[in-house]
Design a protein around this nucleic acid. Sequence first.
DNA 1: ATCCATGATTGGTACGACCTCTTGCCCTGG
DNA 2: CCAGGGCAAGAGGTCGTACCAATCATGGAT
Lengths: 237, 237
Amino acid sequence: MDAPERNGTRTTVTQRAIEQIKSKIAAGELRPGQRLPTERDLAAELGLSRNSMREAIRALTVMGVLEARHGAGIYVTRLEPKDLLETFGVVAEISRGSSLIDLLRVRRILEPAATAIAAARIDEATLETVRSHLDRMAHCERVEDFVAADLAFHQTIVGAAGNPALEAIVAGLSTRTFRARVWRGQRDSGAIPRMRLEHERIYRALLARDPEAARAAAAVHIGEVEDWLRNNIDSIG
Amino acid sequence: MDAPERNGTRTTVTQRAIEQIKSKIAAGELRPGQRLPTERDLAAELGLSRNSMREAIRALTVMGVLEARHGAGIYVTRLEPKDLLETFGVVAEISRGSSLIDLLRVRRILEPAATAIAAARIDEATLETVRSHLDRMAHCERVEDFVAADLAFHQTIVGAAGNPALEAIVAGLSTRTFRARVWRGQRDSGAIPRMRLEHERIYRALLARDPEAARAAAAVHIGEVEDWLRNNIDSIG
DNA sequence: ATCCATGATTGGTACGACCTCTTGCCCTGG
DNA sequence: CCAGGGCAAGAGGTCGTACCAATCATGGAT
């Protein structure tokens, strides 16, 4: 309120409600897991209709800030990266053409770094899990199974880096649908055996607790995918 | 747990509408910039009420997929990373404690890499812009000015890497409010001169078109911020 | 004391009405 | 004939109410 209208005074009631709730959370007035008043009460409190209030709640739900449970109430999420970055995946789902390459380049920066960190701190149990996913990839035919195992393989490794934010971001950079598209293409060009070698190389580096070898192996792997994508960008997206 | 109704059959009409629209976009049926039917028509088409349809539209708007213009209609955005990653910033706004450190660690991975790439391809004009932001930081007192110049400095450099997705992600990793909190603390601990040196070092590396020096300078800079944050995590968040 | 029916609470959906902004057509005046 | 203004239709924004569906607490029956 510094002038008649100046900047964004021209805003909707819903937008205002979103900001208000978000501010309360950012300021710590609303804590993780805490329950909010009823939709009806919230609407009355912020001075808008229940419909508009519901839109605000929906927006905050999509952002991963709130969670509405039918019949039970509205709650603040745990506010951890995993919650807040849930929508991040739509980028990889919807992006096309050069944007996909840009996203893969980001992953090519993050994942080698994450793999290097993981190599230094991964424990026996997690290493065993990685191994099992590697084995699974060798014994399945359907593309869906490949994709699931591949996804689990990489996610377990990145998770071993011990940085939830990093883990959530990398996860968002390559969704199941995106991976499926790539895998299908890779299979058709007979690149599966090469990929298996790359995965094994990553695993061996982890086994040896060698961060630099792990970084290099991951970089090579994602680099290969990036090259392939660059050459087949027209056919898949 | 999963037997009775299989998977997510237990879903709301709004959620379904969101998926349907998203699928149409992912499949290319709805193209960037294209106009959608009216809310009323969409609601009729997908078989739900206008309220629920509006909630779905609100959700997709928050995701950066759709854009509603009062009186004019609903449009698909350009679907570029900048659009899709707009909400990404709330993570840095809302996260507290160790999550902030985790996010900064991600930035410590991305920004040095981006700075290295930028060093190899930055042009004279952009270099001049970087220089101007550097000068601005030396001649302002209010924290807001510092923050604005600091933000512009880093954003210009990361932007010079030529990867819009990378640029949008790094931008989301440190919002204005987060930077303000850090700057305030840095000033109170008399760390501003040191920061200026770090910024200069980055600039000189860019000027020399030296990727590795740029990477190192950026890593040192963000590492310092991270160390400071780690030591003051209680006082600011 | 345990268990289950039952009703109050709360989110989910729907319909209908009205407001505000945008856009384009049409009419008027130069 | 062209430029400008004004009017009306279209479309998003907001509101109120009513009802459905899931949840949870209450209290009575066993």
